[in-house]
Structures are given as C-alpha cells and as structure tokens.
C-alpha cells in the first residue's frame, strides 16, 4: 500500500482539539528491530498512530522514562522508530527484546508538507515537483517516510544524507531502493563527498530547479540550509527540535523565543517562520529551561 493511503494525519494548519488527542500512552509490542548504524537501531511496532511524516510520538519505557521520537514510518500496519542510544532511557530501550511492551502516545505536532499543492512552478518546469530532502545524522530518520509520500504524489525525490563517518549513515540503502536520487556527504570523506550536506545543496540550487527543500538534522546545518533557500527563493521546511515533555502544549518546555510551542506549531515550520525565532540555530533549552548553545 502507498504511504499516504495508509492514512496520514491531519494536514498542517488544521486544528486538532487537544482533548481529541490520545494523551494516555497505549501499549505496543516490539515486533522486531535491527541496527542501522553504530548505536542507532530501528524498532518496529504493529499498529498505527495515523502519523504524517515529520510528526513525533512519545515513547514510554515503563518505570524508566518517556522521550520524544520522530516517526520513521507509519504505514502498512507498522510504526518504525529509528533511535539513537544517547542516555539512560534509550540505553534501557536497547536492552529490550522483541515481544517486550512499551507505551506510545501521539502522533503530535506539525509534519512536513507532502501533498504538494500544484502551484505554477516559479521556474516554469513540468508537472511533477522536484523535492530535495536533507538529513543530518539521525535527523535523517523521518525523511524516507516523507520521500515516500512525495513519491506517491508523483514528485521526484532527491535525498541528501550527511554523517560524520560512513558507519553513522542511516537510511541510505532504503533511500536508493525506493528510487530516490541519493547523495551522501561525510565529514571525513569515508562515503560520498567529503564535506557537508550544504555543499551538495549549494550545487543543486545552482544547477537545478527545485520546488521544495525539507530538512531535519543538526540545527546549525538547518540554519545554513534555510539561509541558502531563502536567498534563492526556494520554499523550505525545517524540523525544529526542542525539549518535548508533554507533547501537547501544556508544559511550555518546547517554546522558542517567540513564545510559540514547537510541539504544536512545530516541529516542522517554514524557513521564514524559523527565521523569526531568535534562538534558531543559536540555542535551545534543557529540562529545567536553562539555555544551551547549539
């Protein structure tokens, strides 16, 4: 089944009354898992969150903690989460086995625009839209899902994947297997070009007509991408990661400097919107609200 035929969530901007959200975690069983890269693993759960690519969910490891994760896939009756082991909660998760139970709630927030409005192309190109997706590190996780939805809508998808080293690249094979043009950058040149995803994008923007850029990854990378896209007049969306605690607009942990909540207004926002956040690419906040520079 096509990805968006599986029932993507509500469209961006469509209001969801908060009490319609299922804010109690539901039990899901780990169906299977595999290593994507060093300390990065994809977990598969049976069921659906009716998620749209770019949305996130809260994964609860009972009697440990609950953390936000972007949704790597939600179609064909399966939810995939690609997770990097970074702290006590994910360490506990990595000790779990197929058949173990976790709690999940969501999907929350605004995702990437995937049903492209067929507006007249500013560069006068053909009927299909040309989309460039850029993932940095484990920020690549939600972009294959995004690309599949674009592909279903008839768009031409280019995926740029960046990592420090080839051992940390994720979703490269799936991207190629799905027929996306797949371009890779590593800091040390161990795969693809030596350099950053922004170097690849710079080339593409120079030589090709691009209708939409969507990115998820380190915020400094996204800030550079946003500036390039605004400069070139190319629409761009970014996933702005902030400390998500409740996920539904009550706790205030995830607000940016405009006071807007990234769990509801974001995490995916337009490049223009992101540039109104004076903290975008500069700092974020920790669990007790203290500033932390990127």
């Amino acid at each position: 089944m096509g990805c968006c035929g599986g029932g993507c969530g509500k469209q961006n901007g469509e209001e969801t009354l908060h009490h319609e959200l299922n804010t109690e975690p539901r039990a899901f069983v780990i169906d299977r898992m595999w290593e994507e890269a060093e300390n990065i693993r994809t977990f598969v759960f049976k069921g659906t969150l009716h998620a749209k690519p770019g949305q996130f969910c809260m994964l609860w490891i009972p009697e440990c903690d609950e953390k936000p994760f972007s949704i790597a896939r939600d179609y064909d009756g399966e939810i995939w989460l690609t997770i990097c082991k970074v702290g006590p909660a994910t360490t506990r998760l990595f000790e779990m086995k197929a058949g173990d139970y976790v709690g999940i709630r969501g999907a929350y927030g605004q995702g990437f625009s995937t049903a492209l409005t067929p507006s007249p192309s500013p560069k006068g190109r053909g009927e299909h839209s040309k989309v460039v997706l850029i993932g940095g590190g484990y920020g690549t996780a939600p972009l294959h899902f995004t690309g599949k939805c674009h592909q279903d809508a008839g768009s031409d998808v280019t995926m740029i994947i960046g990592a420090r080293h080839k051992n940390l690249l994720i979703w490269e094979k799936e991207s190629k297997d799905s027929g996306f043009r797949t371009l890779v950058a590593t800091n040390d040149g161990s795969a693809g070009i030596q350099g950053f995803t922004t170097h690849i994008l710079e080339d593409l923007l120079k030589n090709e007509a691009i209708d939409l850029v969507q990115t998820c990854g380190p915020e400094k990378m996204m800030r550079a991408i946003v500036e390039m896209c605004i400069d070139q007049g190319v629409p761009c969306e970014v996933s702005v990661e902030r400390y998500m605690k409740c996920g539904f607009g009550i706790c205030g942990q995830c607000v940016v400097e405009t006071g807007e909540k990234m769990c509801q207004t974001g995490p995916v926002v337009s490049a223009e919107k992101a540039m109104t956040f004076s903290d975008f690419g500069v700092f974020h906040r920790g669990a007790e609200g203290q500033r932390k520079n990127w």
């Binding site: 908060h18 009490h19 804010t23 109690e24 440990c64 903690d65 953390k67 706790c251």
Partner: peptide, 9 residues
C-alpha cells in the same frame, strides 16, 4: 521523569 501528565475529556 516522564510521563508527568496526561488528560482525558
């Protein structure tokens, strides 16, 4: 630690 809150109707 989380979960720290949830709601019903």
């Amino acid at each position: 630690p989380n979960p720290t809150m949830f709601g019903t109707k």
